[in-house]
């Protein structure tokens, strides 16, 4: 009983740790997109598309952690 609770808690801690990196990454990507749009507003559409792609790639890591919580 004790071990199960500890394991469940550790899974959540692991997911939290795994979400740090993607969080920082998406933050930097969003920063870059905002700065780029402020400097060249006419490129906003393409910058936003690139931001979505970069955010999706970074987010993949957090999603892997989310899946691991369920399957391990």
């Amino acid at each position: 009983m004790e071990t199960t609770i500890v394991l469940a808690a550790l899974k959540l801690v692991g997911y939290g740790l795994g979400a740090i990196g993607p969080g920082i990454g998406i933050g930097i990507a969003c920063y870059g997109a905002c700065v780029g749009t402020a400097r060249q507003p006419e490129l906003a559409g393409r910058l936003f598309t690139n931001f979505i792609i970069g955010a999706a790639l970074a987010e993949a890591l957090a999603l892997l952690g989310f899946v691991l919580v369920f399957i391990v």
Binding site: A56, L57, E59, A60, L63, L64, F66, V67
Partner: peptide
Amino acid sequence: VSLVIRVLTLAVRLYG
């Protein structure tokens, strides 16, 4: 690997 994992990330992103 990043190509194959797309099928997982697309589904899990929406689900999550």
